[in-house]
């Protein structure tokens, strides 16, 4: 059924913006909306009735008692005061980590956590795609300063072609250093002159060729790739900052 126009108004009441009417209770109403509201009240019976109700409601709200008897005594005991004073030192220490402390601490903590998680995922997900040999190669190349093996996720890790790819990366095959990189990768741990423990302890490409990926899976247990270490440090730092922030918030 179409809305009937109000007797005084040219437009039906349902087309009027009643939210504007709610401004009648404001202490300092917007002059522009005040004119509109006054026109609505003058032209529409329903609007006038709503405005009157809202005005009475505003009076009723302002008339509510300013105080109500508290259900219990809120006074602090000596024990409360002593406890609160004791917490002062910790609060002072943790204040920089709180919500009102150092700006940018929260994004930093979030970024560190995200980086740490991403690093951990990067070093663990290849297990399902390219086998643990690829993970080992990532760690070894990272430690030896080699290029990141883009083909490390390729499934044919056991084949010698794939091993060569993992050792030097496909991009390096066309470069002059490629044979040297492959040689470095294929050399025994003792010849690794970078002094990286992770790299020297990791299985070499020749190990891969001789034993296949299964043997490498056992070999990784003795060493942690540097990427993983860094990721864990970043994750720990990020989570630590978040924990400090939480603690500071609780103490505040």
């Amino acid at each position: 059924m179409p809305a009937e126009p109000s007797p005084r108004s040219a437009t039906p009441h349902t087309t009027h913006d009643v939210v504007l009417l709610a401004a009648v209770g404001d202490r300092d109403p917007d002059p522009a909306s005040r004119a509109t509201v006054e026109r609505m009240i003058a032209d529409c019976h329903e609007c006038a009735a709503i405005a009157e109700d809202l005005r009475l409601l505003a009076i009723g709200l302002a008339d509510l008692p300013p105080s109500l008897p508290a259900p219990r005594d809120m006074r602090l005991t000596e024990a409360d005061a002593a406890r609160l004073r004791r917490g002062g030192v910790w609060r002072a220490i943790l204040r920089p980590f709180g919500a009102t402390g150092l700006p940018g601490l929260r994004p930093l903590a979030g970024a560190l956590t995200a980086l740490g998680l991403a690093g951990l995922l990067m070093t663990t997900i290849p297990l399902g795609l390219g086998g643990s040999a690829a993970l080992t190669e990532i760690g070894k190349n990272f430690g030896a300063g080699g290029a990141y093996p883009a083909a490390s996720a390729a499934p044919a890790v056991a084949s010698s072609q794939s091993t060569n790819d993992s050792a030097g990366g496909p991009g390096e095959q066309s470069s002059p250093e490629s044979p040297r990189a492959a040689e470095t990768a294929a050399a025994p741990p003792a010849s690794d002159n970078h002094g990286n423990a992770g790299a020297s302890a990791a299985p070499t490409a020749s190990d891969l060729r001789a034993n296949g990926p299964e043997s490498t899976a056992g070999g990784t247990g003795s060493s942690i790739p540097p990427v993983t270490v860094i990721s864990i440090v970043l994750l720990g730092g990020g989570l630590g900052l978040l924990a400090l922030r939480l603690l500071a918030g609780r103490l505040a």
Partner: peptide, 21 residues
């Protein structure tokens, strides 16, 4: 917006008790 819409909601809830006011 919260104040204005809240007042209208209060009026709706108190529609049949407005004689008190």
């Amino acid at each position: 917006s919260r104040i204005h819409r809240g007042r209208l909601a209060l009026r709706d809830l108190l529609a049949d008790r407005m004689e008190l006011f």
